[in-house]
């Protein structure tokens, strides 16, 4: 098979668009189902995310007068493209893609693009709720991003590499980073909840306060792309943490199986967290971010560096 065909396969099918797309749908369904069960309900059937997506794609696409049409059309695609690119760089079940030293930094950079697009979408679609939601998403970004980066940086330092694949591989020789850096893992999980704007940190899209936040004015195709990009972010975020903290696919016999099991475990933790707490206020989140999470992450980092030196 020619090289370009293989590259195309990787790009479109595995671990590219097709795989991430299926994972996104599956993750959304599992998440909704688990949350529903925890709330004493049944939850949606397995095809629900797909039906929602197709329905939105086939719906009329309208924007209010005065909104920036070009930006509103491009932003969801930018968000989706960034997430997809990040997805290509993350090792999945033992398959090591375009791995290079420092790809962790690139992935982290790519993963912050959706938040920026989200903020701009809120600002440019001129609804009041969008503007407030956009501002909040930016504030939230500053609250979780620093502790999140520090926690992830800790894994790079302890495993002596800035390549996600090497970090994962190293752990199969030693132990899971989660066991060495429990505090770092906790901070990273909380940071991920903030990054994904999931309950209880769904502040930028708090339904009872500002309707649907930055996405209030989006409909049809654009909304579908936003939702898809949100779900893919969940997938990429979870895969990233599996690689960094849970030893990736590990050196066991069935790498795919162990990878999936670990990913589902993290997803379950996210779902449980989303039903257990009331939504925080944005200033409370900033407080938590800077007064609790950041010092904890810093402490973890210092301990790691000190132990490394010793």
């Amino acid at each position: 098979m020619p090289d370009w065909l293989i590259a195309l396969f990787h790009l479109l099918v595995f671990p590219g668009f097709g795989f991430l797309f299926l994972c996104a749908l599956a993750f959304q369904w599992i998440d909704r189902r688990v949350a529903a069960r925890l709330q004493g309900r049944v939850g949606p059937p397995w095809f629900q995310p797909l039906a929602d997506l197709i329905k939105l794609l086939a719906k009329e696409d309208i924007l209010p007068v005065g909104a920036d049409e070009l930006a509103c059309a491009v932003l969801p695609m930018v968000s989706l493209a960034a997430v997809l690119t990040a997805g290509l760089l993350i090792p999945v079940s033992g398959w090591k893609p375009n791995s290079f030293e420092g790809d962790l930094v690139v992935v982290l950079f790519l993963l912050s693009i959706p938040m920026l697009a989200y903020f701009l979408a809120g600002w440019l679609s001129i609804s009041v709720y969008s503007v407030v939601g956009g501002n909040r998403s930016l504030l939230q970004y500053f609250a979780y991003e620093v502790p999140f980066l520090m926690a992830l940086g800790g894994t790079a330092i302890v495993n002596g590499s800035w390549s996600i694949a090497s970090i994962a591989a190293r752990q199969s020789q030693t132990v899971w980073t989660m066991l060495m850096q429990p505090v770092g893992f906790l901070v990273a999980m909380i940071g991920l909840i903030g990054k994904l704007k999931r309950a209880p940190f769904d502040i930028p899209k708090a339904k009872s306060e500002i309707s649907a936040g930055p996405l209030t004015e989006f409909s049809g195709r654009k909304l579908a792309l936003w939702y898809l990009s949100r779900d893919m972010q969940t997938v990429v975020g979870v895969f990233l943490l599996v690689n960094l903290f849970l030893g990736g696919s590990g050196a066991m016999l069935l790498p795919a199986l162990s990878f999936v099991a670990k990913a589902l475990l993290l997803l379950l933790m996210l779902s449980v967290a989303s039903v257990l707490y009331a939504r925080l206020r944005i200033d409370q989140l900033v407080d938590v971010g800077w007064k609790v999470l950041a010092p904890l992450a810093l402490l973890q980092l210092l301990v790691t560096v000190w132990m490394g030196v010793g």
């Binding site: 709330q39 309900r41 339904k207 009872s208 039903v275 707490y277 009331a278 939504r279």
Partner: peptide
């Protein structure tokens, strides 16, 4: 539900 605690709403 207003303060984002859907679980209590459900129960």
């Amino acid at each position: 539900e207003n303060i984002g605690f859907t679980t209590i709403f459900m129960y």
